[in-house]
């Protein structure tokens, strides 16, 4: 009898196994939902898939009476816009500061303790300050995402640069590279795939901060909607919205991964 640590499923079985938990949760949900709805057809806690479909259909395909918008898509668009701004800005900030911190000893001495302290401040605790200082508009929500994501990205990038084999930096210098050339030709191209990876790992936190900000002060967005309809126990809207958020996060992750593989074919081979 082979040890269990040495028994590997073949790829097809592995894929099937991966689907099992999803199926199990779905089936469990349908059973529980049926039982509850059987007892009380007006139960709101575990709505049937049919009622979820019609609730979302209402939001997605019928214009809102008051605004004329298709709320589902309008929510998605404004949430994604905030995310894109927040994560895009974090990306740029991380590259500028991460490279400075990782490569330039004086910059590291100056800023390392500050960045370390900053990354210990829970961003959500800063949200009231942001609302007071920046108002309740888009800016405060985007800044919250930046505060949540950028310090992590900066520290991750600086660490990666410090971990680069020193041989490469010496080699570049023996080839006559200036600091700027080293950044432009060696550091930046080698680190971009790392930053993209960091960005992928930041998708979860970014959504967290986005939803928190939208829940507290917003007039649209996916997070705003689920916290709004919570008042009516509208599980038939909340559950599909949550699934939609997860799907969007998955697609963002996939997109960044494919982008990274396309742009940096060397990165996969050398790690």
């Amino acid at each position: 009898m082979t040890r269990v640590i040495n028994r590997r499923p073949n790829p097809r079985i592995a894929r099937l196994l991966g689907l099992v938990p999803f199926g199990a949760v779905l089936i469990l949900y349908v059973i529980c939902s049926d039982i509850r709805l059987h007892e009380n057809p007006n139960d709101k806690l575990l709505p049937s898939f049919g009622s979820m479909w019609s609730a979302i259909g209402q939001l997605a395909f019928t214009p809102d009476v008051r605004t004329g918008n298709y709320l589902f898509w309008a929510d998605t668009l404004s949430s994604l816009k905030r995310l894109a701004w927040g994560m895009g800005a974090s990306f740029v900030i991380a590259i500028v500061f991460g490279i400075a911190l990782g490569l330039i000893p004086y910059a590291a001495a100056l800023a390392n303790p500050f960045v370390a302290a900053l990354s210990l401040v829970p961003p959500l605790a800063l949200l009231p300050i942001l609302f007071i200082a920046l108002g309740l508009d888009e800016l405060s929500k985007i800044v919250l995402i930046i505060l949540g994501v950028a310090p992590y990205l900066i520290r991750e990038l600086a660490l990666r640069i410090e971990q680069m084999p020193y041989e490469l930096l010496v080699k570049a210098q023996t080839m006559g590279a200036s600091t700027f050339q080293i950044i432009a030709r060696i550091i930046l191209p080698q680190m971009l795939p790392r930053v993209l990876d960091g960005l992928r790992f930041s998708i979860g936190p970014a959504w967290l901060f986005l939803i928190a900000a939208e829940a507290i002060a917003s007039t649209d967005g996916l997070g705003y909607r689920i916290f709004l309809v919570r008042r009516y126990l509208a599980m038939d809207i909340i559950i599909p919205y949550v699934a939609w958020i997860a799907a969007l996060a998955f697609l963002m992750d996939l997109g960044l991964r494919v982008l990274s593989q396309r742009l940096f074919p060397w990165a996969r081979a050398s790690t």
Binding site: P165, E167, T174, M175, Q190, F264, A267
Partner: peptide
């Protein structure tokens, strides 16, 4: 006082740039 173009080097490892 710093590495320069007059002295070329080949190390045992990490002598070439993986991204090029």
């Amino acid at each position: 006082s710093e590495p320069a173009r007059d002295r070329g080097i080949v190390f045992q490892r990490y002598s070439v740039f993986p991204h090029l």
